[in-house]
Design a binder for these strands. Structure first.
Lengths: 126, 126
DNA sequence: TGTCATAGTATCATTTTTTATACTAAAGGA
DNA sequence: TCCTTTAGTATAAAAAATGATACTATGACA
């Protein structure tokens, strides 16, 4: 097998051991990819996102959104209203991540069933 | 924007809120994607992998490999030799993850430079 | 005047992840 | 006999991520 269809000749480490590690620095962690997945469809309000990602706390959602914003992945639009309205959306830079998210989405659709069954098998052996 | 080119009609949650979350359950975390990236090229011995993933400790490498093996993603081949020789490789199921890893690789190659610069900018503002 | 909704923040506790360090077996070679 | 190598394991500690809970501002509305 050969991986050299990828041109790593220009790759400068920047403190990362490989490009995958660098990518993970942006979308790694428990929540970011899921958040980005929901943003593919367009802008979403804070509470709407909270509802779409069950299990996340308000605090974690805020923290992750702040980091994504800091890295230029998402845009935060504040409407001067009461009660407040804040909409999050992908920036055009953030949109470059869509192929990754979609490949994760596809894999999940295709293989989750198998994984779940596999783990149930493993449980029996305990 | 419309995301319905993805057929989620057959998606059963299995305790996951979306397919992306399920995928993350398999390849999430700091090390797994990087390990899988190196395994794309073919089987690798334990110590070789340790060298390819600088920063990982022996313990973490073992833990991550055990989980990937448990989930059917990699195969562990033990050679009866002294000193020991153990080779890790992707299973055919593990190979279904290659598109995800490659998209992460590509993104890293293309955009790491920009991210690093962006963060340096942010530092100045402190 | 009291209540509601939104999008948060603050504080502290807990859990999970990760690290550091030392230790092991077993065969071959000096 | 001692040293080397590989692929680990064991134990404890530290660090990072995550969670629970309470709190806030503001204007509209009853």
């Amino acid at each position: 097998m050969n991986n050299q269809q990828f041109d790593l000749s220009n790759w400068q480490s920047h403190g990362y051991s490989c490009p995958v590690e660098a990518t993970l620095d942006i979308i790694g962690g428990k929540w970011k990819s899921v958040i980005l997945y929901h943003l593919i469809d367009g802008e979403i309000r804070f509470n709407e996102l909270k509802r779409l990602v069950p299990g996340i706390t308000q605090r974690m959602l805020t923290l992750q959104l702040r980091e994504l914003e800091r890295d230029g992945i998402i845009h935060r639009e504040v409407y001067k209203q009461v009660p407040p309205k804040v909409e999050y959306s992908l920036t055009s830079f953030g949109e470059t991540l869509i192929p990754i998210i979609k490949s994760m989405l596809h894999w999940g659709i295709e293989h989750t069933e198998k994984i779940v069954q596999h783990r149930e098998q493993a449980e029996v052996k305990d």
